[in-house]
């Protein structure tokens, strides 16, 4: 059965830690890193990467455009 797998890459330096992506993710992929970037913001990361479907919800809700999304179909 074909399965869709996705992944996100966060520009951690530009992330402001607003967490809107966390709520927007339908598969609970995203968490906030305990570390902070040089501006002092906790930044988004994939805490549960296997669940990512590459739906891009996180990227389009991100006000700062820091998320790039990749997607593949596996069989």
């Amino acid at each position: 059965m074909a399965k869709v797998r996705g992944a996100i890459v966060v520009d951690t330096e530009r992330c402001k830690g607003c967490e809107l992506c966390v709520g927007a993710c339908p598969t609970d992929v995203i968490g906030m890193e305990e570390e902070v970037n040089s501006k002092g913001y906790h930044y988004a990361y994939m805490k549960n990467p296997e669940a990512c479907t590459g739906c891009v919800n996180c990227a389009i809700i991100c006000p700062d455009g820091v998320i790039s999304v990749y997607r593949v179909k596996t069989s």
Partner: peptide, 13 residues
């Protein structure tokens, strides 16, 4: 393997 240019579906304009 997923994060490859050919698999990019969304990035900042």
């Amino acid at each position: 393997q997923i994060i490859q240019p050919e698999n990019l579906v969304y990035t900042k304009s």
